[in-house]
Simulated assay, not measured.
Amino acid sequence: METCNLRNWKGKWSRQLAGDFMAGLVSATLISPIVIVIDRSVVERLASDGSLLRTLRTHAFCSILQPKRFYSSKPFFIVWSLYASTYVTANATDTCISQLPTMNESSTSASLTRTFSFLPTYAANVSLGILKDIRFAQAYGNTGHLPSTAPRVPRVAYLAFLIRDSITISSSFTLAPQVASFVPDWVTGDPHIKKTISQLALPALVQFVNTPLHLFALDLIARPHATTIAERSALIRSNWAQSSSVRAARVLPAFGIGVVINRELREVFQQRMIGG
């Protein structure tokens, strides 16, 4: 009997993980086109005096009018891999934690496990996210194509990206659910809707703090020989407002809408897998 129960538990767990995997892949496919258009446009705008809106429009039209070229490109694969890995890791971590016996207890170990449950997602997103930003800065910050020999990336740029992503990930996967209760009841009394509102709003708002770090790191990679801090600061100040707004719009699909879609799809796929 005990062996049978263990086999059933393992079967249920594996089906839940399959649902996690499918939800993550579908969610990444839905939001990646928006993310790649915005990220590439911000990098190209920083390296030129062109209009950000014009650059956004150009790449958006490319995704619609030249889908084969757009969706088969290396930049799309990089962005898709980043968010597929992020969502799948977040889903699988939640599923694994839910299977731990201590999670049903109000214990210190259970509290600590929940507190640090974002770390696997953080590791997956930050490592691939920094790689993506470096490749984009090298490709579109200067020449417009992926170089055969990439220049050395300053350590300070890595640090800036790391701090930027730490703020974004913690606000998206840890703080957003916790601050849902602060949404006023006159907005909505439904806890599920409050959670959705905080998930959409908080990651976008923190980009106004993150963007100077983002622009600083991109400029270090694109212009490694710029001589003064004042030179870089002037560039960051001139691009902060517009780039912050665009990055807030970019984070909305990636860590707002994307997380909500992933959460809903995960429930649907897991129910179907378990029910099947």
Rank of each mutant, 00 (worst) to 15 (best):
L119P: 02
A124H: 07
K132T: 01
S127E: 05
A110V: 11
F116R: 07
G141I: 01
S106H: 11
R114F: 04
R114T: 13
S109G: 12
N104P: 13
K132W: 04
T115L: 15
S106T: 08
R135K: 14
R135I: 07
R114Q: 09
G129Q: 06
A124K: 08
L119N: 04
L119A: 08
I130D: 03
T121V: 03
L128D: 05
Y140D: 03
L128R: 08
F136W: 00
L112D: 06
P120Y: 06
K132D: 01
A110G: 11
I130R: 01
A123C: 06
F136K: 04
T113E: 14
A124Y: 06
V126P: 06
E105R: 15
V126I: 11
Y122N: 06
G141H: 05
Y140E: 00
S111N: 12
Y122L: 14
Y122K: 03
D133W: 04
R135M: 03
P120V: 14
A137K: 11
A110M: 07
S107A: 09
N125A: 14
L131R: 10
I134N: 00
T115M: 10
F118D: 00
F118M: 13
F136C: 01
A139L: 00
F136M: 07
P120I: 13
P120T: 13
Q138K: 04
Y122T: 05
S117L: 01
S127R: 05
F136R: 02
T115V: 06
A123R: 12
A137C: 12
R114E: 10
I134P: 00
A137N: 09
A137R: 05
E105Q: 15
S109K: 03
V126R: 00
L119E: 13
S107T: 15
S111Y: 14
F118S: 12
F116D: 12
T108F: 09
S117Q: 04
T108C: 06
A124D: 04
L119V: 14
D133N: 12
R135S: 01
T121N: 08
Q138T: 10
E105K: 15
I130H: 03
P120S: 09
S111H: 11
D133K: 00
I134D: 00
F136E: 00
L128W: 02
N125T: 14
N104G: 15
L131Y: 10
I130Y: 04
S106D: 07
L128Y: 09
Q138Y: 06
L112V: 12
S107P: 13
A139S: 14
G141N: 02
I130K: 02
I134G: 01
P120L: 08
L131N: 11
S109C: 11
G129T: 07
I130N: 02
N125Y: 15
T115Y: 11
K132F: 08
R114K: 13
L128Q: 10
S111W: 13
A137L: 07
I130G: 02
A124I: 07
I130F: 06
G129P: 01
G141V: 01
T121D: 11
A137Y: 02
T113P: 14
G129S: 12
K132G: 01
G141W: 02
L112K: 10
Y122M: 12
S117M: 03
A124G: 11
R135F: 02
F118Q: 11
D133F: 07
S109D: 14
F116K: 04
A124E: 04
L131W: 08
